[in-house]
Nucleic acid binder design. Structure first.
Lengths: 338, 338
DNA sequence: GAGAACCTTGCACACGCTTGCAAGGCGGGC
DNA sequence: GCCCGCCTTGCAAGCGTGTGCAAGGTTCTC
């Protein structure tokens, strides 16, 4: 009784329905050949007994578990959690299921996560943070597992890389700042030096230079609210205060705005223009009202999941292995109108 | 090549190591009897071939998949995502793995989710939102699956119910409001009528009554930032404005605060005291600086996961089937000091 | 009405693993 | 020297499913 009675198997259903076990199997296999009457007998019996196909066994046979691993750190962060949500939802719609692995801990934890994915014979892994060791990634691919990298630009063959047009987006912010009459530009970054963060930084600096403007770059900590505050301290205590700052992330921007307003009593956007990136929920809250770039979360999820569903041979897989999506600028109140 | 070579099996490892398949199996089974030399031969071979135990097959045999289903809606919400994160982490530490199921869609979706859990022979399901149909919950239990309900007070036997002391917490807010000299109390709630939300509301109303005070209760929409704003509209346009309002949730409180400050130009806590519940990240942001109750997220996760790990017979399971945790009051600046 | 084409169904094998069982090897106690 | 017990190891049965194959049944065509 401690080990409650086990699950009911297809055999029991077959016996009750007076058919063979294969008939049961076929009833629950889309596209298999079963007569309507057999099917209904089976379904009735299954219903009565509370039968549910054992996906473990099915996965074993089909060599396709239906599991997709989501490998992620900082998952309680607004942007990450919305991405995880979208991915989970899209996977469900596609008949797959999400397995969640947290990699906040040590550094080899992405590798550990991929090992776990292999053990569960996941059909694919989607990596939202960190980068896997080449050898383990190769093992995944060789085993027939698909790999999606979001916002990491590793050049691993056979994976789908989804990125945004970070550089171009950064350029558009410069334009907006210039139109607003700003000239003392700054970039507030975390020092995580993630590919996408660096792309924004470099894009910003380059575009500013094209306008003949220099940029003060400051980096600190992780991409958190607190880091945003610290960055504000650093930038706003300089001899010459910037009048426009692009924060690499909305979370940074929120911290930055709070510090700028409450500690330095600056009014935004009159004395200071600020832009962020991600368009997290909080960016639209009236205390922040932040002009920012929207992560196309739905499009990312859509793209990733549909790629997983695609039938494809090795060539096609390689040819479509990189997607670059567009980040829309969402105008709110933290930049003066041009 | 389209269907990349399959995974390497224990048999191949056995052949390479010159031992039997059982030896390989035992090497990767903690506590099994293998001599050190055999073990090291096996490990070497496994390493060389890139072998990883197939958890699907292992789960099939052991009747224990290692999978735990997290059934959740609104997972991009700050509180929910932090709970999901904590649970995922604790499960990993316990050697289990989290399967994530989103139930934002239709209403029977919790049942669908549990069906999915059954199909994957999950060892347990943790339900963070919604309530399962009795029959399907019974099926889970009968199949030997464990069920944890967080903040839902269904009275299903054999499940672990984790709740907070919502009523008592609400009472403590009343005390704080009274100490601050407030007398026109209001409660801002969503109209979701979730057990925990209603417990807070009733606890607040009752405690106020014990102090001889009436409470204006307003309910609207989901537990979102936007609902908080609407609730502020409703409460602040009354003939007699409340001077203290307890929001059922931090998200409501943030919306409420923003509307109160920016639309009604009220200063908090001078003219209006506000309290929330959950202690989400944003509550500590300086724009809000919200006095609130901390969801003991870690303790909840700890409690749930350790219960899952417990060996227990039916009696013990029933006797420990309900846990009530304490929510600490986190003092910040949205209530005047007494 | 006969033969072909098609649909349905059961059999049996395969998937990769765990584990009870028995046999073998080894050392220790008398 | 013998017997007992322990540790290790291989064998083989089984977990619950999918699916190729062949046999049987039905329908269609001419």
């Amino acid at each position: 009784m401690a080990q409650g009675k086990i699950y009911v198997s297809a055999l029991e259903v077959a016996e009750r329905a007076g058919v063979s076990r294969s008939a049961v199997s076929r009833t629950f296999t889309p596209g298999a050949s079963v007569s309507p009457e057999t099917r209904s007998k089976v379904i009735a019996a299954a219903e009565a007994l509370g039968y549910h196909v054992n996906q473990l066994a099915r996965g074993l046979m089909r060599n396709e578990s239906g599991i997709v691993c989501l490998i992620v750190s900082d998952m309680a962060t607004p942007y990450r959690s919305s991405l995880v949500k979208a991915l989970t939802q899209h996977l469900q719609n596609a008949g797959k299921i999400a397995m969640l692995i947290n990699t906040d801990r040590s550094d080899g934890s992405v590798d550990l996560a991929l090992r776990q994915a292999i053990r569960y014979r996941a059909d694919a892994s989607i990596i939202l943070s960190g980068l896997p060791d080449k050898s383990i990634a190769d093992l995944c691919l060789k085993s027939g597992q698909r790999l999606v990298l979001i916002n990491r630009n590793d050049d691993q063959d056979g994976t789908l890389k989804i990125n945004l047009d970070d550089r171009e987006a950064a350029g558009r912010v410069v334009t907006a700042f210039v139109r607003a009459g700003c000239s003392r530009l700054a970039f507030a970054n975390s020092d995580a030096k993630t590919p996408s963060l660096m792309a924004r930084e470099e894009g910003f600096v380059d575009a500013a230079r094209a306008h003949g403007l220099d940029v003060i770059v400051e980096r600190h900590g992780g991409t958190t609210y607190e880091s945003g505050k610290v960055l504000a301290q650093k930038l706003m205590t300089r001899d010459v205060r910037p009048d426009a700052v692009f924060c690499a992330t909305d979370l940074l921007a929120c911290g930055f705005l709070d510090a700028a307003r409450h500690q330095f009593s600056l009014s935004v956007p009159e004395e200071l223009c600020v832009a962020g990136f991600d368009d997290i929920q909080q960016a639209s809250w009236s205390s922040y009202n932040l002009t920012t770039f929207a992560q196309p979360v739905e499009a990312i999820a859509q793209e990733a999941v549909s790629w997983l569903g695609d039938e494809m041979d090795a060539d096609l897989r390689r040819s479509r292995s990189s997607r670059r999506l567009h980040a829309d600028l969402v105008w709110r109140g933290s930049i003066r109108a041009g």
